[in-house]
């Protein structure tokens, strides 16, 4: 598997690993059968993501994309976080092997899933704001 230096860096020293006890948005995507699960914790204050942590079961790319996604949304507004695309995560990591692109999709969805949870907790329907969160098939 030809990974970039950046992927190795984020795999070996992942940023923002762990949990947030008083998180107000938690999302989990993927499944064990496919070999990757990402869980993302957000602490949002006044529309700003003040803290973010993640836990990932998965391959090197799954861990690296989770790490990169958390870096890209930390300190940003919800609006900015909603604009995060898997493509941007891939570019920030200097590319991913084709078979690993689905990991970046999972990372984008983990963020969206956590944001959906945030709105749900507020009693707001997340669908018009966050949009649908697709299911990433193993076969992708």
């Amino acid at each position: 598997m030809l990974y970039s230096e950046k992927v190795f860096d984020h795999f070996s020293n992942p940023r923002n690993v762990g949990e947030i006890e008083d998180a107000n948005g938690i999302g989990e995507v993927g499944n064990a059968k496919c070999g990757d699960i990402m869980k993302m914790y957000l602490k949002i204050e006044n529309g700003i993501i003040v803290d973010v942590k993640f836990k990932t079961f998965g391959c090197g790319a799954a861990i690296a994309t989770s790490s990169m996604a958390t870096e890209m949304i930390k300190g940003k507004s919800i609006d900015d976080a909603l604009k995060l695309t898997n493509k941007a995560v891939v570019e920030a990591l200097d590319g991913l092997p084709a078979v690993k692109i689905h990991c970046s999709v999972l990372a984008e969805q983990a963020v969206k899933s956590a944001l959906s949870d945030y709105y749900t907790r507020l009693g707001v329907d997340p669908l018009p704001i966050v949009g649908p969160i697709g299911v990433v098939e193993c076969e992708e």
Binding site: V17, A32, I37, M38, T56, F57
Partner: peptide
């Protein structure tokens, strides 16, 4: 394992399926 949500679920006994 410390960064694995699957392991966390297993330890909490949440994932009975596993």
């Amino acid at each position: 394992r410390a960064m694995s949500p699957l392991w966390e679920a297993m330890m909490k006994g949440e994932n009975k399926k596993v």
